[in-house]
Design a protein around this nucleic acid. Structure first.
Lengths: 337, 337
DNA sequence: GCTCGTACTGCAATCGGTTGCGGTCGACTT
DNA sequence: AAGTCGACCGCAACCGATTGCAGTACGAGC
């Protein structure tokens, strides 16, 4: 294992000073160098197999062409496509995305954030938004470029790219009402997350618009287990059994489905069920799950674009970009029997 | 936005030379500094909110505490848990995992690899193994630490952590035979991937052991679409219809399930079906898919451990660690009717 | 023939840490 | 009292690039 050649090596071979080599190698400054000289440098670089040391460059320029992507849970199928969207924008522009999993733990998130900051990330894309998010406040104070995706914060400090949750939720409720349902329950995502809150509020509005009563159980997290627990609780509660359940996301709905079956009920005959996010393979389920489709790839693409704008000097305007959602009706919703 | 404090700032506040500050701040060298002085430095650092500049440190030490993780397809549910396993080992040891998606494209993989190398990654974990993998040869020549996970290469240059595919495949075939199946087909993963090849070979051995004929269709990729196409092709072929299908992985099996249904057949009554990998939510399917469980998290954990060993100086022994697999029988397999 | 401008290139500082080496000083040995 | 030894700390080089500034050379202009 012989050491990698440095720019000084290239300069020596080409018979120039390393400063000249630097200029020749950089497309932006190569105009300052004699064409013939530049060619000599390029040839020397190729011959030696020179690759620039990004660390040294970063130290000098304090730009790393690296962005941190903080994901609350990579095993939630919502997020991988978002990551791909982000990468598809970043990579061609010479940026690398550093993806980190926070497991929904603020401590872990903070640790990752600091680690990435120490590695001089040029900016951040956070899918980990909680409504109250001290990390973001301090980041904003330090002037760090960032964009939120999917989940927002209460104080808008940074741009947010998200799906149009209210419209999606309204579409789901309207669909159930059109089928004839009157007792529609919402298994809500955590109220500490903007999506949980927004969807809950939209649910309340939507049922109110049909003059129905709202009934809502909050899940501790966006997971199947939490959804199952909430549904079990709901089924053992007093009062009339609901005929339709609106899940805060698909995982919650899957958990609910388990509970419904465990209680000896059938879906959709006894209980209709909808999810949210339209994660992959929902139509392989039986019943195939009706869900609200979220353009995850686009979410990532837009977020990456906004971040690049900021990195390149645009101020961090806290605008919200909300992308349209679409209800995908499958087999888990049917008229009440 | 005021600049981050540097070590010189800390040193000035503490009234020492920056070299002393450096030693005081580093737990490994803090013994070389008077306790009282060290405390002063620590206090100054805390007061200023000092965080070390990892870039500068890396430049000097040529260690970045960063490892590149190359994943062929993050949207394949097999991989996110592997990534978590990797992170769970790396993070507590002060390493950051840089996850990159290669979309199964060698060019994209090479680009990511070079980019990460330019950023001085200390090592790599590759889940992108193809049996012929030029990138790895050159990496090995350059003495770069790396570990393969899940998929291997023909020439063993690096350690490989993988599931015991032959045992898993044998268990699946034995299970089908025990149910009474005689015409068992394998929808194989790409033969260009070690897992595809290994599982195919194991399939051949397993059916031969029961004195049955092997029949095998290779899918172009480990995706549901490829599986569906292969199954359609199989069903339109001449000859007796198989009573059982062994998918090269779960996605292929899902695609096969689509084709089976589209052909008006039922699973498991007309055709039994097994998957491989046991990705999440398989038991929410109807029929719940019988599959071979792979300890994905453990795969990541082991790979990360091996990589750390290498980074810390152990030679890159091309040993293979193979973790036991377990057949999970669900509802998609039944005796032939 | 002298000045001026232009094109090119080299010098050296700089980014923010790490580390080998050497110097100072007090305590301890003999 | 001289010598020895550690403990502690500072000096300065170094990692590999980028970049402001200055210097050189050469041609053009007058």
């Amino acid at each position: 294992m012989t050491k990698r050649p440095t720019m000084s090596d290239v300069a020596r071979v080409a018979g120039v000073h390393k400063a000249t080599a630097s200029r020749a190698l950089n497309p932006l400054t190569s105009g300052q160098v004699n064409q013939a000289t530049a060619r000599r440098v390029l040839a020397a670089a190729r011959q030696l197999g020179y690759t620039p040391n990004a660390t040294a460059r970063s130290l000098r320029t304090s730009r790393t062409h690296t962005v941190g992507v903080l994901i609350p849970d990579l095993t939630n199928p919502l997020f991988p496509p978002v990551v791909r969207g982000i990468e598809n924008v970043l990579f061609p522009r010479g940026y690398t995305a550093l993806v980190a999993n926070t497991d929904n733990e603020p401590d872990r998130e903070a640790a990752h954030f600091e680690a990435l900051l120490g590695r001089q990330a040029d900016g951040f894309i956070l899918a980990t938004g909680r409504r109250d998010h001290p990390l973001l406040v301090s980041a904003h104070e330090r002037g760090i470029p960032a964009v939120l995706v999917n989940r927002g914060t209460d104080d808008a400090l940074y741009p947010l790219v998200t799906g149009d949750d209210p419209a999606g939720m309204t579409a789901a409720v309207d669909h159930l009402v059109a089928l004839g349902h009157r007792r529609i329950v919402h298994l809500a995502g955590p109220a500490g997350l903007s999506t949980g809150l927004r969807r809950s509020q939209a649910y309340r509005h939507a049922v109110a618009a049909h003059e129905l009563d709202a009934r809502l159980v909050e899940c501790e997290s966006y997971t199947a287990d939490a959804g199952e627990r909430a549904m079990v609780a709901l089924l053992t509660e007093a009062g009339e059994r609901p005929t339709a359940v609106v899940g805060g996301n698909d995982l919650i709905a899957l958990g609910a489905l388990r509970a419904i079956r465990a209680a000896g009920l059938r879906c959709p005959e006894d209980v209709s069920l909808t999810g949210f996010n339209d994660m992959p393979f929902l139509d392989e389920l039986r019943p195939a799950l009706t869900s609200v489709h979220v353009p995850t790839h686009e979410l990532g693409v837009e977020a990456a674009r906004l971040l690049l704008e900021q990195i390149e000097g645009a101020p961090a305007v806290a605008k919200t970009i909300s992308l349209p959602l679409r209800l995908v009706v499958r087999d888990s919703t049917a008229p009440p029997s």
